[in-house]
Design a binder for these strands. Structure first.
Length: 496
DNA sequence: ATAGGGTTAG
């Protein structure tokens, strides 16, 4: 297992970390007198407008409102905010495509294609690709990366491979980069066998490089098949391609994933012994790896020792430690680490908050979880769908259905659109109290989710239908039944 | 959006 380590690793190139600017251009438009007169960002204003307008009003606002100066950046922001409202997003995109003075940019096309793919609306997807081409804006390698990913996550990896092999027909020739991308897309969805087959067939044609090999090795590691990963890397060495620190970190993580804790530690010791440049990723892998198997003391020991070795922890390292403390130790100790990181000047990110909020909820500390959620806004961090889903789920589980519903309403007013999970969580909760009014709410939620492009499972439909029939809501049940038959032909929507 | 570390609860 250590032959890999006999080679010198490539120089580790420091990564330039740039922080994206968080300032958002403000719009002086005010919505209506009943709403707060605070300056509202233009993208948020438009999203609200799009969500509440019928198609006639929308045409008027999008095409003929002279106050809105359309620009690619603004369009992309709107599309992003409408991420969990696919049909409306596509309606908006198509409408704006007919604007007299505005033409879509290539990145907006990519966004729209992504959304169509998520809705599994492949007809629209390929229409957009054709339209993009006729505007001479692509499609580009990124477009195909998006399309492949959508096919793979819809359970159609063969279609993804086919799309890759026919890229050139759409005016975008394949190269090593796009080859590596499709391999990675397949591996990240655990279709490693498929990736490996494609790799074997095409590695000569595209001159597979060490990145290709790393992607495949990581794929085998993801599905806990470390021997296959080692085999692939041996082949890489035979080809004269050098492993890099990324290669070693992939294997290290692979051992942890496969539960080979002893091997992981041995591998790390060998890395050290053979003068590999060990970096923050290596240490984060160790902290997380030891933590998830409950070896908290060792995780903390590694965390403390890395500084001695001259490697500073990153936010990700802190997140790893905080997470494992929440899971295997106590949320109180996790908070201690969180406060320590803040004191040292680290800026917690949304993962830090998600992990801590879940930890607090799990410990039954709902008030503190909510408090933290309010406090994170001071750190230029907005609560996201996942956090709302956690809070809503735990409140519902604790029997506080009203509080769950309150948070659901709150997210609507904060430009955080519910996703499939949100609806499933809430609909399930509507059966807990055995109240007939709750079932009416469940029915309304079901209608709303379909409207937003999410397809409920058959189980969900049946449950709501049964509930409505049992509580004497025959008319509403009929409405739901016709909704279900209208959904029959629709493809199933998956979560993010 | 070409590779390695940190959310995802049966």
């Amino acid at each position: 297992m250590f032959t890999l380590l006999n080679r010198t690793s490539a120089k580790n190139i420091p990564k330039l970390v740039t922080k994206p600017s968080l300032s958002i251009p403000c719009c002086t438009l005010t919505t209506s007198p009943s709403e707060p007169l605070l300056p509202i960002t233009q993208d948020a204003y438009l999203v609200n407008l799009i969500l509440k307008s019928d198609s006639e009003a929308l045409t008027r606002e999008i095409l003929h409102n002279p106050i809105v100066g359309w620009a690619p950046d603004l369009v992309n922001k709107v599309l992003k905010l409408l991420w969990n409202h696919g049909p409306k997003a596509l309606q908006f995109f198509k409408l704006l495509d007919h604007h007299p003075n505005y033409a879509h940019s290539s990145s907006s096309f990519d966004h729209a294609i992504d959304i169509a793919g998520r809705l599994r609306d492949y007809k629209t997807l390929w229409t957009l690709v054709a339209r993009m081409r006729s505007c001479r804006l692509g499609p580009n390698p990124k477009t195909f990366a998006i399309i492949s990913e959508r096919y793979v996550s819809a359970g159609k990896p063969d279609r993804a491979v086919k799309v890759f092999l026919s890229m050139h027909i759409h005016g975008c020739p394949q190269d090593l980069n796009s080859f590596n991308t499709i391999l990675d897309v397949l591996c990240k969805s655990n279709r490693v066998e498929k990736a490996y087959n494609l790799f074997k067939v095409c590695k000569g044609r595209f001159k597979a490089d060490s990145v290709s090999y790393n992607i495949i090795a990581n794929g085998w590691c993801r599905i806990k098949r470390t021997p296959k990963a080692l085999e692939v890397l041996e082949e890489m060495l035979k080809k004269g391609l050098n492993p890099s620190l990324a290669t070693y970190n992939i294997m290290l993580k692979g051992y942890f994933r496969a539960g080979q804790i002893k091997e992981a530690w041995e591998f790390f010791l060998q890395m050290k012994k053979r003068k590999c440049e060990i970096d923050v990723v290596t240490y984060t892998t160790l902290v997380h790896g030891f933590g998830v198997v409950g070896e908290i003391k060792r995780a903390q020991k590694v965390f403390n020792e890395m500084v001695v070795e001259g490697v500073l922890p990153s936010v990700a390292t802190y997140n790893a430690l905080i997470q494992v403390l929440c899971k295997k130790d106590s949320v109180e100790n996790a908070i201690v680490v969180f406060e320590d990181m803040v004191r040292k000047g680290y800026m917690p990110n949304s993962i830090t908050y998600t992990v801590l909020i879940r930890g607090l909820c799990h410990a039954g500390e709902m008030e503190r979880a909510v408090e933290l959620m309010n406090r994170m806004k001071d750190d230029e961090c907005e609560p996201n769908v996942q956090m709302y889903n956690i809070i809503i789920r735990y409140f519902c589980d604790a029997g506080e259905i009203e509080k769950g519903l309150n948070f659901f309403e709150k997210m609507g007013s904060e430009n955080c659109l519910p996703n499939l999970d949100t609806y499933n969580i809430l609909i399930s909760a509507m059966f807990l109290r055995k109240k007939s009014d709750d079932l009416l709410v469940a029915g309304k939620l079901l209608i709303e989710m379909v409207d937003r492009g999410f397809l409920p499972r058959k189980f969900t439909f049946n449950r709501v239908l049964d509930g409505l029939l049992l509580t004497g809501n025959q008319d509403f049940a009929k409405e739901i039944l016709s909704l279900q038959s209208r959904c029959g032909g629709l493809p199933r929507q998956i979560k993010l």
